[in-house]
Design a protein around this nucleic acid. Structure first.
Lengths: 213, 213
DNA sequence: CAATGTGAATTTGTTCACAGCC
DNA sequence: GGCTGTGAACAAATTCACATTG
């Protein structure tokens, strides 16, 4: 959609933050918001907010600001979360279980549909009673992906298994991967990959505290 | 240390990745590595690797590459993980517990020293038997920070409590904060803040899948 | 008159390309 | 020959500033 050309990755990250903040404003029955206000809530400049949105069109009204509800919808459309992405979780260990029970994991636009794990002792376990999801064996991955029209995989497996599992999910037809394991993955260029990386975040703090003063 | 001026944030993030990869190479008894090899493992160009390191000095040998062990030590010194940062975890819910039991959570340079939670039912629970850590009440936070010389806090609490908890940890003398809750935080500029954000990562995937093809 | 949208200016970050070294 | 370190060239991202709009 739109000129998908040359959109900085950082813009997309900020769009996610804007969206979340806007949803909070919406819940607080706020009708409009200015780029200045929205930016201040997130530590961004007003110009940055306007520039980011300008990549995708015109959403505001001069002298007034942005309609909160409209902008929520617009950003969802931009991010592609106005539809639902079905998600496979690989790994039902501590982290996987925490993710399943994490309030807000099921953010608008994403739906957890299946969980697989390599450990036979875990297979069959009712991991999400609310949705009636049981842990399935790795061998059932392909079938689960097809049956539930799953497009995204979240990897919450040990480092030693991560690359192999990544290869498997790609073979099963997964279109995008979110990796929680602290390791680099090699994937085909056609499969987008993002990572949630605790070490990087902690080391960023360490660096900042070491360098200042 | 060094010219802490004007170092891009992205450089620090990549340094973390280099470090992890170098540690893997070290474990595999690899003696030296070139910028080209290291970059390829992480999807970076050789020039990028060299530039990043050049911010901090000269670490390689022309015609040979970088000594793996030396570079590991150098990057640790740069990131400030050649010493140990004591960490407080706030929130002993599903996510907090998962973090505690997460292998690799106790990465070199960081040590979990205390856990607090607002829920009286959780207080006293032995959350980390290996280290003998019990969940303490929120009121004990200040004392724990002082007693264990804690400088970093990891927040794994519900969104509704996050800002208040952030204020409390700052008041308790915490110097840096890692936030897991999907919400923006207002902190004094003097307290660095990083966030681990599942929504942003998932929405990034959603966007990429929506926009290409 | 408050606030958007946007070119232009500026700053920041990345890539190139090559001299120098092992 | 292979590879680093780096200035110079280039590209990208951010900030500025202002004409325009309701």
């Amino acid at each position: 959609m739109a000129k998908s050309d040359t959109i900085p990755n950082a813009v997309i990250g900020r769009l996610s933050l804007y969206l979340r903040q806007l949803e909070a404003l919406l819940a607080a029955s706020r009708g409009t918001v200015s780029s200045k206000e929205l930016g201040a809530m997130l530590g961004q400049s007003d110009a940055q907010v306007r520039k980011d949105l300008a990549y995708f069109g015109q959403f505001g009204q001069a002298g007034v600001g942005y309609g909160v509800e409209d902008l929520v919808q617009s950003i969802r459309r931009i991010l592609g979360t106005d539809r639902t992405w079905n998600v496979l979780l690989v790994g039902a260990g501590n982290l996987g279980r925490a993710l399943v029970s994490y309030r807000g994991f099921l953010r608008k636009g994403f739906s957890l549909n299946a969980v697989v794990d390599a450990d036979p002792n875990k297979v069959g376990e009712l991991i999400d009673s609310a949705r009636g999801i049981r842990v399935q064996a790795m061998e059932e991955m392909g079938a689960a992906v097809r049956e539930h029209h799953i497009t995204l995989a979240i990897l919450a497996v040990p480092v030693s298994a991560t690359q192999e599992v990544a290869d498997q999910v790609v073979a099963a037809g997964i279109k995008g991967v979110l990796n929680f394991a602290p390791t680099a993955l090699q994937l085909p260029d056609s499969v987008p990959l993002t990572a949630v990386d605790l070490s990087v975040s902690l080391e960023q703090l360490s660096f900042q505290l070491s360098s200042d003063a």
